[in-house]
């Protein structure tokens, strides 16, 4: 009898310990979390598989084209320079994280706006990512760039390198950016730098 009580107590204690571990130790966080590499506009972020550089940030109601693309809120256009390091790489994860840790995804509506990039090793690739966002997304927005596309449970880039680039938008600048009316010309993505691109 004593023996049975002791075994029962051990089993219950083991289950309790298991529960404590899953509840209080960040197991899922360490198992699933990507590796973030922080950067700022203009300086390259070196990931395991590619170098990511944000070369420009624009806010506009209109992206030029025929027809021009209108934003539901405003377009936040992020110009990128990407280069695969060791082997050909496809990147499909480009999204924003704002000051409140909310996510905003890229739009495929603008005529030359990219949502993914196929990189040849060592060949620089230029692309502009266009986000149609409301005003609250702008302050402290950071661009995330990685291989797996964003989905609601962020499973496509677990344990992968992610570039996290601060776009340098201060909360005090948001009103002025929102009021801007100038249209932005987005150039075709590819191995040709935007200033030389035909389209």
């Amino acid at each position: 009898m004593r023996r049975a009580v002791a075994s029962a107590a051990i089993v219950i204690a083991a289950m309790g310990l298991g529960r404590l571990i899953t509840d209080h130790l960040p197991t899922t966080e360490t198992a699933d979390k990507p590796f973030f590499h922080d950067g700022a506009v203009g300086s390259p972020v070196a990931l395991d598989y590619a170098d990511v550089t944000v070369t420009g940030v624009h806010v506009t109601p209109t992206i030029m084209g025929n027809p021009a693309s209108a934003a539901g809120g405003r377009w936040l256009v992020v110009d990128l320079e990407l280069k695969a390091r060791h082997s050909p790489t496809s990147m499909a994860g480009f999204f924003l994280v704002d000051a409140n840790d909310r996510r905003w995804i890229a739009s495929s509506r603008g005529p030359e706006c990219a949502t993914a990039a196929n990189l040849s090793t060592g060949v620089r690739h230029w692309a502009s990512i266009c986000f149609d966002v409301p005003k609250e997304a702008l302050a402290d927005a950071r661009l995330m760039a990685t291989r797996g596309a964003w989905d609601s449970h962020e499973a496509q880039f677990r344990r992968d390198d992610v570039a996290r680039v601060d776009l340098g938008i201060a909360g005090s600048e948001v009103d002025a950016l929102w009021a801007q009316k100038d249209a932005v010309n987005v150039k075709e993505a590819g191995p040709v730098p935007p200033e030389e691109a035909q389209r």
């Binding site: 390091r85 082997s87 050909p88 496809s90 196929n118 990189l119 040849s120 060949v123 690739h125």
Partner: peptide, 13 residues
């Protein structure tokens, strides 16, 4: 060990 490729569906150029 670097790889340079042509002809794959996911090659940009």
């Amino acid at each position: 060990g670097r790889e340079y490729r042509v002809g794959h569906l996911f090659d940009g150029i």
